[in-house]
């Protein structure tokens, strides 16, 4: 077993996890919303990209925005349907509704794309790089670069720009923000559209690593939970670090203990953190 190879795997996996979770981080940290259909949105992003590349014959680079657009559309519809719940901040109902959306997405995707597994092949994922006895693909490099750029841009947007300030204000106190003349509904729509686009981008980049199935959303979402919770709910920098840590953990656990139980082990870590510091989860609204 090559240690350095596992390190490389872990780093790539970690950036992939962070990228998958970023939509949730913003959703929760900036807008105090949750989306249990996140995993199925990831699945949809992967399948739309796959459909674009292998059925419509689009170039990979064109399929990505195509998938992101689909993600935005789904996010927009979800938010439109549950707007009343969002404005009431009824998190319990939002949870169940988004879970229902995930279920509907699963059914719709299986109906459209079939229930057999597919392989999303991209020009980058088929090119291997051998470096000494290390092995990775150009796809892996793309994941790491895009994740870093995305996180940097997001951090800048939330901290330094007007849009970021508006979103943070709405998170802090929706009523007060509305009084100050901010269109709260529009911010909620924007955040959900962002979530849809971000998870679709992540799917388009990460999904080529493994075969894709319409039923994969159920497992995918747990990774997101762990990243978001470990990162200190809603913190962008925290999510990045948590994603990286989880990636390394999964790679080494998979290599040395058992790949089948890697998710279960990640969850055990989550439980441990929650039990040790349950209060640490309540990060201030709009927390970074």
């Amino acid at each position: 077993m090559n240690l350095t190879q596992q390190l490389v795997n872990g780093i790539v996996l970690g950036h992939a996890y962070a990228l998958i979770a970023i939509g949730w981080t913003v959703l929760l940290g900036v807008a105090r919303l949750v989306n249990f259909g996140h995993g199925q949105m990831y699945m949809l992003g992967a399948f739309v990209t796959w459909y674009g590349v292998s059925r419509l014959g689009l170039p990979y680079i064109v399929s990505i925005p195509f998938a992101m657009l689909a993600g935005v559309a789904v996010g927009f519809i979800m938010q439109r349907v549950m707007l009343r719940l969002t404005l009431k901040q009824d998190l319990v109902s939002i949870m169940i509704v988004t879970l229902g959306f995930g279920y509907v997405l699963h059914g719709a995707a299986a109906l459209t794309f079939g229930s057999t597994g597919q392989i999303l092949e991209t020009p980058l994922s088929t090119q291997d790089i051998y470096w000494g006895d290390l092995w990775f693909t150009y796809q892996d490099i793309a994941i790491v670069i895009v994740a870093i750029l995305f996180f940097a841009a997001l951090k800048y947007t939330i901290d330094r720009t007007r849009i970021g300030r508006l979103a943070r204000m709405v998170a802090e106190d929706p009523q007060l923000a509305a009084l100050a003349g901010i269109n709260v509904k529009r911010v909620y729509f924007g955040v959900f559209a962002f979530e849809g686009a971000a998870v679709a981008l992540a799917a388009a980049l990460v999904a080529p690593r493994t075969p894709i199935l319409t039923s994969m959303g159920f497992d995918e979402v747990i990774v997101t939970f762990v990243v978001v919770v470990l990162g200190g709910i809603g913190s962008v920098t925290g999510s990045y670090l948590a994603g990286l840590a989880l990636g390394l953990f999964t790679a080494f656990f998979g290599a040395f203990v058992s790949p089948a139980y890697a998710t279960a082990a990640a969850f055990a870590v989550l439980i441990a953190v929650l039990v040790v510091r349950p209060g640490g989860l309540a990060v201030s609204p709009g927390g970074r």
């Binding site: 949750v34 249990f36 319990v92 497992d219 279960a264 989550l270 039990v275 989860l281």
Partner: peptide
């Protein structure tokens, strides 16, 4: 006992994770 301190969505999140993990354990 584990989720005693947790409320609302964190409670749901952990219980959901338990369901996902239980499914992996049952399959393997």
């Amino acid at each position: 006992l584990v989720t005693l301190q947790l409320r609302e969505f964190v409670f749901s999140l952990v219980t959901y994770a338990v369901a996902v993990v239980a499914a992996t354990v049952a399959q393997n």
